[in-house]
Design a protein around this nucleic acid. Structure first.
Length: 647
RNA sequence: GCUGGCGUAGCUCAAUGGUAGAGCAGCUGAUUUGUAAUCAGCAGGUUGCGGGUUCGAUUCCCAUCGCCAGCUCCA
């Protein structure tokens, strides 16, 4: 039995304590101020409750109210305060459980006879503040299953009893209380309710018990909490910034796209938005030439048998559009394509292939339609009609690794153009609804894992059970300017589709072999990427993407002709330029140009007209001064052709 | 699809059981302007669509469509 333990601290020092000393006792030993501020511990990299006894040698960091990890603990504690407040206001309300969001939100579910309303929020917040004012101590107790069952039954917490059943036998069960409130909870929690400095309830919604739509619907309350009022205010400022950058708003303001009830969840790209969309397509087409892809054009409407063969009909027919004529409604026969892969299989299958011809990389920007359920569509991020920068690579088993390696390079090259530096990679494995046999799946998964492990520039995380129904996949999450994660690229390995479509190639020994199919997209859905990119840039698109790259602003009508000449010069170099000919003051034209986020504003007056110059103004910056027209055109042309992020 | 909320002029919003009002945008005119809004005038709405209650509905009720938030889902 160990009697003393060694606790190593972040400053490199180590201290000895009797075995069983708690995190809080370590903090106390370091100093009283630290002890007061302590909300949790980070023990060997794991966030633990400050009441946790330390049983062996560990590395420990004390987490205080100021640490980001501390904020999580504060919010988790606020969940209990919320539940307590609701129970104080409506005694007997059965509680489910609280949970942390990925963002700075927490939630708590209740069985409540009606939805919570804004006026409830005021009362609940008031009650919560009272509880914070009472500065009640959180207490942690380990209990055995029977004890917990008895206590929760007495309290009428039948939902908690169901939760208790989900805790595996043998796992420690902990209860946390503050005042009379008691919850089954893993923790960690702060010392006292008073350490939760600022709270705010955000919204209410219905939510299925355990997230399963077959279960009863509970009423959920969302809230947030911070150590200080200042941090809470900063949170709301961030929300405001998100609203300002919302792509739906920017899309309207910049005249990029609109939506109409005549085609729900389907964007109408206006001329300006279409220029941007096509700039993305141009980028991919250019890179396809470099990376050896071949583009194809395939039909929109197919005999439904195709989807039965591919397996999509069985798995996704609820989400497909059908295109039957009136006398065919008894039997669905025509279907609008929800994806391109079967088309590409048909193309590949239409000819004989030698191993020498592989890999074949077939790209397709075909328009896809999916009947997304009404509640899931939103802006450009989830739509019913879209195109992907889709491609399918048909290759030999030996070619999988080099192909995927090349794809990583391709993906990172594209993302760099948008300034997406922080990329997370996930390996998603066999789902429940899977096609094909387990051995093939295991093999495919191991191939992907091997490639991932071989890449020094990639750290990946497993995503068990999240693969496509025909194969495992690698997903790429990028982080935008506001730190939000978006899943964009995907690489999917598929041994099923080639089987179903009986695809073959002749190998070097003359025998027929089955090719492997790699599904891949880099931008993902063009529509979704458009939305993500707009929010990432806050509408300030880099010159190569801007629909109007330069705008010439004549100061008086007298120089309109010179302004046209300048615009003509820009257009002759392949740039997108307009002239603001209206009889308005310069300030007005500048304001309009800035509002429309035009990267380059070229001001011309009498002086410039006489000297063949322009006064350059860069987006959101000051006047750059008068320069020769040629210099400015060169500068813009260079920024555009190099797809620079800078002006 | 589920829970809740919302739908008034192109946009942002106001108003009322007695058939709607502002700012911006738009149009017209004047102004010829040097780095983020010149002035004046005009025009603009079957209050999402359909029913019901009522002497009368944009307002109240029902249904429907769409949008928003969340849940679930996303080949």
């Amino acid at each position: 039995m160990v009697t003393t333990i060694k606790v190593s601290l972040p400053d490199g020092s180590a201290r000895e304590f009797p075995a069983g000393a708690t995190v809080f006792e370590v903090a106390e030993a370091i100093g009283p101020r630290l002890a007061r501020a302590t909300v949790a511990g980070l023990m060997d990299g794991r966030l633990v409750d400050l009441r946790t006894p330390i049983t062996g040698d560990v590395e420990l960091r004390i987490i205080t109210e100021k640490d980001p990890e501390g904020a999580e603990v504060i919010r988790h504690s606020a969940e209990h305060v919320l539940a307590d407040a609701v129970k104080r206001l409506w005694p007997g309300t059965p509680i489910d459980a609280g949970r942390q969001d990925h963002s700075e939100k927490y939630q708590y579910d209740f069985r409540f006879p009606r939805p919570f309303r804004p006026e409830d929020f005021e009362r609940i917040e008031e009650e919560m503040r009272r509880i914070l004012g009472e500065d009640l101590a959180f207490e942690r107790t380990e209990a055995d299953r029977e004890e917990v069952k008895r206590v929760m039954s007495e309290r009428g917490e039948d939902i908690k009893l169901k939760r208790l059943e989900d805790i595996p036998e043998g796992e420690a069960i902990t209860l946390y209380s503050h005042g009379p409130f008691l919850d089954l909870c893993r923790g960690p929690h702060v010392q006292r309710t008073g350490q939760i400095g600022a709270i705010r309830l955000l919204e209410a919604s219905g939510a299925y018990f355990k997230g399963d739509e077959r279960n009863e619907m509970l009423q959920r309350i969302y809230g947030t909490a911070f150590a200080t009022k200042k941090e809470l205010d900063a949170y709301f400022a961030r929300l405001e910034e998100l609203r300002r950058r919302d792509h739906r708003r920017l899309g309207r303001e910049l005249d990029f796209f609109s939506f109409h009830p005549e085609a729900p969840a389907s964007p109408f790209f206006h001329p300006r938005g279409t220029v941007v969309y096509n700039a993305l397509l141009d980028l991919m087409r250019e890179k396809y030439r470099a990376y050896g892809y071949e583009e194809v054009i395939t039909p929109q409407i197919f005999d439904v048998e195709l989807w039965k063969r591919s397996g999509h009909y069985d798995n996704y027919r609820e989400d497909m559009f059908f295109a039957d004529s009136f006398d065919e409604v008894e039997e669905r026969s025509s279907s609008v394509k929800p994806m391109n892969c079967p088309s590409h299989c048909l193309i590949f299958g239409s000819g004989a292939h030698s191993y020498r011809d592989l890999p074949r990389r077939i790209a397709d920007f075909g328009r896809l339609h999916r009947y997304e359920r009404s509640g899931v569509v939103t802006g450009l991020t989830r739509v019913r009609t879209f195109a992907q920068d889709d491609a399918h690579i048909f290759c030999t088993p030996d070619q999988i690794e080099p192909e995927i390696t090349a794809l990583f390079d391709f993906i990172f090259e594209i993302y760099a153009l948008f300034g997406f530096e922080d990329v997370k990679v996930y390996l998603a494995t066999m789902p429940e609804k899977a096609m094909g046999d387990v051995a093939v799946w295991k093999h495919a998964e191991s191939v992907l894992a091997r490639v991932l492990e071989g890449r020094e520039d990639v750290n990946f995380t497993m995503n068990p059970g999240e693969g496509a129904f025909y194969g495992p996949k690698i997903d790429f999450d990028v982080h935008d300017a506001l730190g939000r994660a978006w899943q964009l690229a995907t690489i999917q390995l598929d041994f099923q589709m080639p089987e179903r479509f009986d695809l073959k190639y002749v190998d070097s020994d003359g025998s027929e072999k089955r090719p492997v199919m790699i599904h891949r997209a880099i931008l993902g859905s063009l529509e979704r990427f458009f939305g993500v990119m707009l929010e990432h840039f806050g509408g300030d698109l880099p010159p190569w993407l801007a629909p109007e790259q330069a705008r010439v602003l004549p100061i008086t009508d007298a120089v309109n002709d010179y302004a046209e000449q300048v615009a003509g010069e820009l257009r002759a170099r392949g740039l997108r330029a307009e002239v603001d000919r209206r009889s308005e003051k310069l300030g007005y034209k500048i304001r309009e140009g800035e509002t429309m986020k035009v990267p380059y504003l070229l001001v011309v007056g009498q002086r410039e007209a006489e000297s063949g110059t322009v006064a350059l103004r860069l987006r959101h910056r000051r006047d750059e001064g008068v320069q020769p027209l040629e210099t400015v055109v060169d500068r813009i042309e260079r920024a555009v052709s190099t797809r620079s992020l800078e002006l």
